[in-house]
């Protein structure tokens, strides 16, 4: 083992956590919606790194492929087809500040409660491990144990594609 490699891995982990947190903040706080989409993409890249640290390189690849490659690009198409920038606040300043405070309070309470549950909960010690969670094991389980959900999710995706085509198909009004 190379001396200092622990620090290197911890540094990379810190960088990934910072990417995730920064991306989430950018996605939520920026007023231009295109920056918000960029923040979501950053957050998803960070999540892919976290999945890699959680022993699942397959899911890391899928996260980048599906979220950054498909979801964010689709949202950008939606941004180009509409005018989604945040409007100027029309309410009174005090009311605006009140709603901001309420939102901050609610989300802070949820963060505190869930984080406390996660840190103080008595998690059971894992039983003896079965299987290694490799890509081969995932493929075998998808085609044996989980074959019904696997087929169902493909049906759901097909119906979603057809539904999206039908909803968005109606022609442009002549105005």
């Amino acid at each position: 083992m190379i001396p200092g490699s622990d620090y290197l891995v911890t540094g990379i982990f810190g960088l990934i956590v910072a990417t995730t947190v920064g991306g989430a903040l950018l996605a939520v706080l920026s007023t231009r919606i295109i920056r918000s989409v960029t923040g979501l993409a950053m957050c998803c890249v960070g999540l892919a790194g976290l999945y890699y640290f959680l022993n699942s390189p397959f899911l890391a690849l899928m996260e980048i492929l599906i979220y950054v490659g498909a979801v964010c690009v689709t949202i950008i198409f939606g941004v180009m087809l509409s005018e989604p920038d945040e409007p100027e606040p029309q309410e009174k300043r005090s009311r605006e500040a009140l709603w901001g405070g309420v939102a901050l309070l609610v989300s802070a309470a949820i963060f505190w409660g869930v984080a406390r549950l996660g840190l103080q909960g008595r998690w059971p010690a894992p039983a003896a491990p079965v299987g290694d969670g490799s890509v081969q094991a995932i493929g075998i389980s998808l085609l044996t144990t989980y074959s019904l959900p696997f087929e169902l999710i493909s049906l759901v995706l097909l119906v979603a594609i057809l539904g999206a085509l039908t909803i968005a198909h109606g022609g442009r009004g002549k105005e």
Partner: peptide
Amino acid sequence: VLAAFLLAAGIY
């Protein structure tokens, strides 16, 4: 804790 933060940011 990171997942809790993402949840809170999403709800905000």
